[in-house]
Amino acid sequence: MSLMTWCLMTTPMREQFLELWGRRWLLRQFVARELYVRYKNSAFGFVWSIVPPIVQVIVYTFFIRSTLGVRAENYSAYLLCGLIPWTFFYAATLDAAHSLLTNKDIIKKVYFPREIVPLTYVSSNFIHFLLGWCIFSIWFYGIKGLPLLWEMLLFPLVTLQLLIFVVGMSLWLSCLSVFYEDVKFIYQTFVNLLLFVFPILFMADNVWYWALSSGRPWLYRIYMLNPVASVINAYRHVMLERLPPKSLNLKGTPLDMDWSSFAVSFVLTILFTLAGYAYFNRRKWEFVERER
């Protein structure tokens, strides 16, 4: 965090950030507008932000139980720890990639800090994300009676990393897709594959035993530097008890949480996002001059 403070203290990034902070009320307005417009014409409104993940979980649980023969109890909880962050990452970055183009009319006419536009979509999806966790908690801790763990206090820390990463990704994508329209399409196409790359439908432990058996354990270390993989893995360790051995067809016992790997990934995330913010700020004046 001291690195972040240092970077923010260097002008002009510090100025940009202070300006953005001064206009946080405008960001709130943008988010309110976005949420209002999204659900204005639907009878069930906000319900639509939680129904798709629930259906997804039912389908995936059934699919994985029947094909992979997973016998763990409450396996859907482990799936959700992957799907809730994944849905946030997926929806927010895709929305943000289009955001500057969707809002180009207003950008061309009035000045306001341009970061607000991609951040709007991060924020509105973040609200859905938190809502998803609320429902998760009510269902699994309230109704199903899963135990509460002291590690849950680390939930905000894990969430912070995810949020920082999604912000960085959104800044990069929104800015790049203004100048290179292919970026949007490439991302749209390949982001779906990431569902199978990140440890969402399987556990990070599966990757570890696969890397071990192939004689390249260092692959796992690299894999876990990926912020989304690291965050999903951390959520599972923070929110849920360790899976019982043999429940996942693992070739050994499930792993303990590796906080040092998490920390490295966290630092990389911060650097990635700071670089994205710097790049965005460098080019944000060119958005309006872009011919189209």
Partner: peptide, 17 residues
């Protein structure tokens, strides 16, 4: 800036909003 006819307006929102 009154640069253009209601550039900041969103047609789905009410006048109040």
């Amino acid at each position: 800036p009154l640069l253009s006819l209601g550039a900041g307006f969103h047609l789905d929102l009410t006048a109040e909003q």
